[in-house]
Nucleic acid binder design. Structure first.
Lengths: 343, 343
DNA sequence: GCTTAGCACTCACAAAACATGAGTGCTAAA
DNA sequence: TTTAGCACTCATGTTTTGTGAGTGCTAAGC
């Protein structure tokens, strides 16, 4: 059926979607003819609209309102109609200016990127840090704090750092901690963190180490250091979403905030985006997350170093300025990739 | 005038405040006599209420509504009437259970504490990390990433870590980085970060180092490493505030979210709390922050190590369950202090 | 001299009644 | 196939009308 959309119907559908994106009001036949200078009468447009409704692209909230695009319409729009706008120079400028690496740690960079995405798009910015497990081990070190307390610092090649305070079984002299570090660095250099975990287990099994107390301790410490860690997701600009008229309702708003407080499900979705490079678009229920009802997600992957990939993107209402946001997300992802590239 | 409050007036005022805290509705004379089993008629209560209004403790939103406590009333309540409740056992339990240090870095601990405060109090939790500058230097290290990129890791005695990616002027061999680290650690051990900054400057001025390229480079690197950093504040549980009826208005809500997105002013306020140990309470305009209109802040200081102090607390509407929240904040602060204590 | 019953008055809020107007579907003519 | 015309629908805004909680004041009661 979809194939039967002729040129005129497409134009009208596009006009409706764009009007709706711009105004958030159901759009009626007269509004179309007026705003888009069509050489058609409202009556004709009405006929077309009736067809589009039957095909599932439009629904009317009630008899005497205009019509509103369905998810299917947005999908069609994004796939076939959308003319991705070139970014305005100021936008490029702002993005480039705020993507700065120097003097910050990776977490901050990603957080700032998230903020950036939100402020440029006027929706919510979202950035998931690359899975730590796929990073490449660079360096591990133990710093004695006080008593039995040890700070473990784990650095990966792309500059991601994981710090942990570990309560050791007994007090260890600083010299031992240094030796442990040296030993482990030699052992683990160049492996991915996932491999590091395996390697530590293997090594612990080894007969030779079993009888070496220092090694055993070192391995046990390192094991705690590289233990699984909740993945980080930075969501910024939640206040932006409040400006959107579809969330003017307090109840709706509460739901959204609750939803994003619990990041777990979102992470699952972002993981799926990582399966393939490039831009992904989830419209409304396509994400099959209940909490995302009425919301769309545009993501793109970025990479740090050779393989480890992260995801960043923008969350907004389904009625989102796709034409504007898609290039923003795409450009930002490329920029972040370049920024984090290891020469 | 305040001194003329006799016992009966106090009781009535207390009853009004507590009713209002519980219901968020203006409270009327009949409600008081009913709910608090007073041996007084509504008419009498009305007379007292009229007096209290004149004294500035109450206002009526309009003629035929009940009355609502003013900030002055809350202040009086907190200072003179409040009977700080002992905490419920489950609350203590939950707080203790969730205050865990092991396996996390300090930032995470504080963030989790903030989340904890919000979920136990049902308002917003807020935790400011101790000023980094007053921490005591423990350890500094440089890890080579790729090309000229260096990761600088700065550890203080209390376990706070600052990571930074630094773009060096030229590529440096790893061995040099290690030597630099050793040199700097010897030089700076035991100083506060603030002193470290001075020390680096002094050292750079020194004739001896001027002609040693490696030292000069090391100092320049370290200077970037310890450069001023925006202080961290963790605010969690913003969704809780949405449950409060006083913020049911969408416009109000937007304001609040905008306000807390910009943390700058808040930090100023928290700094003031650090000037003296213990619990501080700001009611509404007392904080003299416009954004805090209608909101109260309860904070307490915590300490990590000997001197460096941080602040944590709860933000809620002025109509806040002070009796319940004050002990929560107090207890949590003590617990965090103990947790971060260096043996 | 307090305390309290009685009563008129106020005013937010809810429900009902009404008007408005944008938008639709259908029919018949161009 | 397109379009003008027209009756019909229905959300939204406005006015009207009740309702009830709460007040202040006065005068009687203890």
């Amino acid at each position: 059926m979809r194939d039967y959309l002729n040129e005129r119907s497409r134009q009208i559908l596009e006009a409706i979607i764009e009007d709706y994106i711009a105004t958030a009001e159901p759009v009626g036949s007269r509004a179309i003819t007026r705003r888009h200078a069509m050489s058609l009468s409202p009556a004709t447009v009405r006929n077309v609209m009736a067809d589009l409704e039957e095909m599932g692209f439009l629904i009317s909230p009630h008899t005497s309102a205009g019509r509103v695009p369905t998810e299917q319409a947005y999908r069609f729009y994004v796939d076939s109609l959308l003319d991705v706008r070139r970014m305005a120079r100021e936008e490029r400028e702002e993005i480039r200016k705020r993507c700065q690496l120097s003097g910050k740690d990776i977490g901050e960079v990603l957080k700032e990127t998230s903020r950036l995405l939100s402020s440029v798009s006027h929706y919510m910015g979202i950035v998931a840090a690359p899975r730590f497990a796929s990073n490449v081990f660079r360096h591990m070190e133990f710093v004695k704090l006080g008593g039995r307390r040890i700070l473990a610092v784990l650095v990966s090649r792309n500059g991601a750092v994981q710090n942990r305070i570990i309560e050791a079984d007994e007090e260890l002299p600083p010299a031992d901690l240094v030796r442990m570090g040296n030993y482990l660095n030699g052992l683990l250099e160049g492996l991915t963190i996932a491999r590091v975990r395996q390697r530590i287990l293997e090594e612990m099994e080894d007969e030779k180490t079993r009888y070496d107390l220092l090694l055993t301790r070192a391995l046990r410490l390192s094991q705690q250091t590289v233990a699984e860690n909740g993945d980080e997701v930075f969501i910024e600009g939640q206040a932006n979403i409040l400006e959107q008229p579809e969330f003017a309702d307090v109840v709706k708003m509460k739901e959204i905030f609750r939803a994003f407080e619990e990041k777990g499900q979102l992470i699952g979705l972002l993981d799926r985006c990582m399966e393939a490079e490039g831009v992904h678009i989830f419209i409304g229920s396509e994400s099959s997350l209940g909490q995302m009802a009425g919301m769309s997600l545009i993501t793109s992957t970025y990479r740090t170093g050779k393989n480890s990939m992260g995801v960043l993107g923008v969350v907004g209402p389904t009625r989102m300025g796709y034409a504007k946001v898609i290039p923003i997300v795409d450009y930002t992802a490329r920029l972040v990739s370049k920024l984090l590239e290891l020469e």
